[in-house]
């Protein structure tokens, strides 16, 4: 049987990390195929609901990436996001979601190499903990 490959959902800021992903592709940098990307206008747009929804729908890992602090297209969106991410990541880990499934990064649109490296890192990290089994919405165990 083929080795299990994780499904990872990445939420990438339109102004930086999404560009980096594009550049990484154009530059033919080697990167794992496990990542599905949703483009968001800013990391500040991330709502914790999105992360939960990804996990509920069966994502094995979630990766959110935005602009480096100080470089936000909207001046400060990523600063607000940073606080939300810190608290929400801690909360999910606190109830038993493996920390290896949640990833956050700052990647500018020029950092294609970093993008490829982090993507590899994220996939490896998720692979370590195996397929997700927690918080997945399945047919309700009811009468």
């Amino acid at each position: 049987m083929a080795e299990w490959e994780p499904k990872i959902l990445a939420f990438l800021c339109n102004w930086c990390s999404y560009g980096a992903a594009d550049l990484a592709g154009v530059s033919r940098l080697k990167q794992p195929p496990n990542i599905r990307i949703i483009r968001i206008p800013c990391s500040g747009r991330m709502n914790p609901k999105f992360i939960l929804q990804a996990l509920r729908k069966g994502a094995d890992g979630v990766w959110v990436s935005g602009c480096h602090p100080g470089d936000c297209h909207y001046i400060e969106g990523n600063y607000y996001a940073r606080r939300k991410f810190a608290l929400f990541k801690n909360l999910l880990e606190y109830v038993g979601i493996e920390p290896e499934r949640l990833h956050f990064s700052w990647i500018s649109s020029a950092e294609a190499t970093k993008f490829a490296a982090v993507a590899k890192d994220v996939v490896e990290s998720v692979k370590k903990v195996g397929p997700s089994s927690r918080l997945i919405k399945r047919e309700a165990e009811v009468e």
Binding site: L52, F88, L91, L92, V95, L135, I136, K137, A140, E141
Partner: peptide, 26 residues
């Protein structure tokens, strides 16, 4: 979209409590 199911399934219940609690942060 629907963020959380309305059943008493454990996934739905935990999702509800996580989001409710997060809304209380700070």
């Amino acid at each position: 979209p629907q963020w959380v199911g309305k059943t008493i399934d454990r996934t739905d219940t935990l999702t509800f409590h996580l989001l409710r609690a997060f809304h209380m942060a700070g």
